[in-house]
Design a protein around this nucleic acid. Structure first.
Lengths: 223, 223
DNA sequence: TTTACAATCCCATGAAGATGGGATTTTAAA
DNA sequence: TTTAAAATCCCATCTTCATGGGATTGTAAA
């Protein structure tokens, strides 16, 4: 009996424990069932939000791999990566998502994702991807790999022309510097009302509604 | 007869024309023979240096894909990429090399390589890689993909021990995301008053007085 | 067992920011 | 030259934020 228990535990410890964070229950259940049908995998968690995942996580049931969506209710998958990696840096996180735009890809990778797969992939490729992870690889859908590679390629002169005027850009600098309207006004030798007016126009042009967004965009080189 | 010629040309135009730049003649010949054994491939060039390749190149025999070594006599493969891509930007270049160090990888990618394979790979994977290229992908050996991904990952070299608690850090994420107190509260399932309270503590700990400062610090990795 | 701190919540007040509506003058493009 | 922006300024209103003052509960180290 003791032997049986130990053997069981041994087998469980050899298996790769996988957590699934996916808000589409149908998809989540399908993937879970697929994973559990493979002898070396065990889907230990199947939940629909990062918050729920973190709440139910303790040091005894830490998964080896997390398959995670990006578009989750509450905390997004990308923020989830940061949280999870900070607490458990050894967990490998594979994003499994419909988003194939550069922004989501690089946000995920920078946050600490070890792989990035598009959701349309056939199930056997999920298996291959997890195996690739354990072989020291980084599973990526072909389109993703291309975008990642492109990141390094020589940029073609694309001179991003900002929609902002020079005065407006000066104001943006002020905002990024953490100045109040009054301080910006003093620095630029204009009245606070002018600053207000410029900021109104900046917000319209950039389609934002507060200075935090402007600061973020500026940091992302989007201005 | 005319029909036959046209058909032949049609077939040739459908085939993927591949050039091989490899100074080890044995390996080069083996790869060439393998490629030519595949119906949709045609190895149009098999040479041992970039200089020779460029000399024999004219607008009529431009390959679709180049498989190239890095350690070549004369001009290195990396230098070669720049030369070739400048003249023929549409050629896809796949590096086929024994170098798996970051320096060579990133030099190649930055110069314009579309793929990076390690030389120990089985021949069928060369076929798969070229097909992946045509499917919009970027063929990479798993080890290479891992290194490329790692490039984006957060460097945890200097273990900046944040003075903030995990709840506080979660709030900071909310602020950086541009959320209002209310939205942060909803996301974290706590009251706005608790958010306020946390933020008061965050400000004290970070010696700041507004959320713009927090966002800036966060962007500078100071949190 | 104190002590300290984290996490939760409440109230009140003043400051700063967002947004709507204007107006005038200067500058640059059509 | 007409027109369209850009740049300047003013006012009113509402929202959000910052900051002060609390309180309670639980945990974890000293």
């Amino acid at each position: 009996m003791v032997f049986t228990l130990n053997l069981k535990e041994l087998i469980l410890s050899i298996m790769i424990n996988i957590a699934l964070i996916e808000d589409d229950i149908e998809i989540g259940d399908a993937i879970r069932d697929y994973l559990n049908s493979i002898s070396e995998f065990r889907c230990v968690v199947n939940t629909d939000s990062v918050e729920r995942f973190l709440n139910h996580l303790n040091d005894d049931n830490v998964p080896d791999v997390i398959l995670m969506d990006i578009g989750l209710p509450g905390m997004s998958g990308i923020e989830g990566i940061k949280f999870i990696k900070e607490k458990y840096p050894d967990i490998d996180i594979i994003m499994l998502t419909i988003h194939y735009d550069s922004h989501h890809i690089f946000q995920s990778l920078c946050a600490g994702a070890s792989g990035y797969l598009l959701k349309n992939l056939p199930f056997p490729e999920i298996k291959q991807s997890i195996e690739m992870l354990y072989a020291g690889g980084a599973p990526m859908s072909p389109q993703i790999a291309r975008k990642v590679i492109h990141y390094f390629q020589p940029k073609k002169s694309k001179e991003i022309k900002s929609p902002l005027t020079s005065k407006e850009k000066e104001i943006v600098v002020g905002l990024v510097d953490g100045l109040s309207y009054k301080m910006i006004a003093d620095r630029m030798y204009i009245s606070v009302e002018t600053v207000r007016s410029h900021i109104k126009n900046i917000y319209k042009k950039l389609h934002v509604h507060n200075k935090a967004d402007v600061i973020r965009k500026s940091f992302h080189g989007e201005i």
